[in-house]
């Protein structure tokens, strides 16, 4: 049991009257890489936003690293600190330099000494190959560089899980590759990752499993090879035929 880092059981979520997530059951083991795909509006983003409680679920349970997420979770910040997240729109802090973006949370949330935080940040920025831009501001970087900085920023908190919410959807085609490369390297280093993406090439290369969602439900979950070779449901087949 202990290597199940995320356990979601019978989870339901509504936005007003509209049910976005229906009866979600999902278990993720440590060091697994999961790709979530599906048409827009199918609840993929909402699902992973529920995992670090940027959205609240109404029914069922979500257990992240042994802590159940409920309305009265006092130390939700501690759980969030262990779950890194990368957003579609980067969401870097525009008033801080790249380096400060990366050191802000380690210094103030993890109480790390400034010197250590900066060393750590440079180390992670080097991994995503933008250490030379450290003193610039986000507005001066290209989209791809910003997204790689956002990955480094999340990694600086040394999370156990990384969530990616369509990290390449807002990028120009030629910048997608540099971001995907950074993600592939991260995957090879053994990070637990849940990635919402339409990049099927990335899924084939690194994912252990692929989840297909539609209308708020998990339609299909399979090993990557199996998923692409012979999808079971008709909805998946239709989706794959359109996207590939």
């Amino acid at each position: 049991m202990s290597d199940k880092i995320i356990q979601i059981a019978e989870m339901n979520k509504w936005f007003g009257d509209f049910q976005v997530l229906k009866n979600i059951n999902l278990e993720v083991e440590k060091n697994k890489k999961i790709v979530v795909c599906g048409p827009s509006g199918s609840g993929k983003s909402t699902l992973i936003r529920c995992i670090n409680r940027l959205e609240e679920h109404q029914e069922g349970s979500i257990i992240v690293d042994g802590n159940e997420l409920t309305a009265d979770t006092k130390d939700i910040e501690k759980i969030r600190a262990e779950v890194g997240m990368v957003f579609q729109q980067f969401n870097l802090f525009p008033h801080l330099s790249i380096l400060d973006n990366c050191t802000l949370a380690p210094i103030w949330v993890k109480k790390m000494p400034k010197k250590d935080a900066e060393d750590l940040a440079i180390q992670h920025l080097e991994k995503v190959q933008i250490a030379d831009q450290a003193s610039k501001y986000p507005g001066q970087l290209s989209g791809g560089q910003q997204q790689r900085c956002a990955i480094a920023r999340a990694l600086c908190m040394e999370p156990k899980i990384m969530l990616f919410d369509e990290p390449t959807s807002a990028l120009d085609p030629e910048m997608i590759k540099e971001v995907l490369d950074a993600m592939v390297n991260l995957a090879k280093a053994g990070m637990t990752m849940i990635v919402v993406t339409h990049e099927m090439g990335f899924a084939k290369e690194v994912a252990d499993e692929v989840i297909f969602m539609d209308e708020g439900m998990i339609v299909e979950r399979a090993e990557t090879k199996e998923f692409f070779a012979n999808p079971k449901s008709d909805r998946t087949k239709l989706f794959l035929s359109q996207i590939l």
């Binding site: 940027l54 969030r80 600190a81 262990e82 997240m85 957003f87 949370a105």
Partner: peptide
């Protein structure tokens, strides 16, 4: 301010 700024800050574990 865009909502993403709040999301990003929260996801880094800030109260």
């Amino acid at each position: 301010l865009p909502r993403g700024q709040y999301d990003a800050a929260k996801s880094l574990g800030m109260g």
